[in-house]
Computed example of a mutant assay.
Amino acid sequence: MVQVILLLTVVIYFLGCKGAATSKDAIVTNDRSIIGVLSQEQSFYLHTKYPEENYTSYIAASYVKDVEASGARVVPILIGKSREYYKNLLKKLNGVLFPGGATYFKQSNGYADAGQYIYEIAMEMNDAGDYFPIFGTCLGFELLIILASGRGTPENRIRCYSYSNMPLDFTPDFRNSKMFVEAPHDVVDILATEDVTVNAHQFCIVDENLVAFNLTKDWLVTSYSNDDYGVQFIASIEHSRYPFYGVQFHPEKNSFEWKLSKNYPHSFKAIKANRYFMDFFVNECRKNFHTFANAAEENTYAIYNYEAKFTGVLGSQHHECYFFEPRGVNKLI
């Protein structure tokens, strides 16, 4: 009897080890992810602070830090380039972040044109079985929906004013989404009950925008919020087929933006809950296996080639910013 028990124990042990090894080996991820962050047209305010340099574009450093805090590196994606530039760069990157900001979509050779190239190339990659994620924050989220709508006139978004911190009103089926299926219960509880999401927008996407362009089959709404005048807008969304995600609020600001007048929530709970979004996105990017040719090429493209400037001390809403492609003194000033 003892021998039988010992034999069974040995069999169970080896089966368990084999099963565990098989499960572990099946999960292969790219743990050296590099994510592109799209730049945008230089803001008028920041241009007045750096008139001699006449920079063409910038990225708020909070987005870069947010990506890095989740375990990935950043490559800046410049605006005003050819489709070939974006196609070649996306072959080296593992995902792209469309950041928030204050530029217009009708400007040529800027944020929106670059975003359209990236969006179309990413769809082509995913259709070919090459898993390539995109995440849009605030303006970036609006751009995703407008690109899906065909980027026509008038733009498929509405005027909407929200400068408040608020909770999320989750949809009944939000747990069926890729973004929230594995979200920890305590994170969901914080997001659903406390004023921890930072809103700062003058436009938004509402259900009618999705209906008007037949987007309800392709895009899954997972939460809503209300603007300062009671308008219900879509707060989080994802594509049903592609790994494309968007949030109208700003998860990066809780940890990395500090302007006193903005009253961003910096509590432990607020930071914990908002960290979830970039952690989720970077984990999605780990499913992509694009690489640069070598470490030297990585270094050539990396954000580390640029110096973040302390713009908060100049009155900017962004504590730090990266600037790109200076073109000398603007003669119009």
Rank of each mutant, 00 (worst) to 15 (best):
304 Y>I: 09
233 F>N: 13
243 P>W: 04
3 Q>I: 13
30 N>W: 03
188 V>P: 03
327 R>W: 00
299 N>T: 08
250 H>C: 04
253 K>P: 01
201 H>G: 02
322 Y>V: 07
122 A>S: 13
72 A>S: 09
92 K>M: 12
14 F>M: 06
32 R>C: 06
232 Q>T: 11
241 R>Y: 10
112 A>I: 13
261 S>Q: 10
50 Y>L: 14
88 N>I: 05
290 H>W: 02
303 I>M: 05
150 G>W: 14
305 N>S: 01
33 S>W: 12
74 V>T: 13
21 A>Y: 15
174 F>Q: 03
65 K>P: 06
129 G>P: 05
81 K>F: 12
210 L>D: 07
106 K>M: 14
35 I>F: 09
328 G>N: 00
211 V>W: 10
70 S>N: 11
89 L>Q: 04
208 E>G: 05
155 E>R: 13
300 T>K: 11
249 F>W: 14
73 R>V: 14
279 D>V: 02
42 Q>M: 14
67 V>G: 05
332 L>I: 15
40 Q>P: 02
157 R>G: 04
298 E>I: 07
210 L>Q: 07
56 T>F: 08
187 V>W: 02
10 V>Y: 07
154 P>A: 13
18 K>E: 14
26 A>H: 13
191 L>P: 05
6 L>Y: 05
2 V>D: 11
224 Y>R: 03
258 W>Q: 06
277 F>C: 01
253 K>Y: 02
137 T>N: 14
219 W>G: 01
125 M>L: 14
177 S>L: 10
204 C>K: 00
5 I>E: 15
325 E>S: 13
32 R>W: 04
218 D>C: 01
147 L>S: 13
111 Y>G: 03
36 G>W: 04
326 P>V: 04
222 T>K: 04
179 M>L: 12
245 Y>P: 06
221 V>D: 03
276 Y>N: 03
11 V>N: 12
46 L>D: 13
299 N>W: 04
294 N>P: 02
149 S>Y: 09
302 A>P: 00
126 N>L: 08
209 N>S: 07
183 A>R: 01
56 T>L: 11
161 Y>E: 06
124 E>G: 12
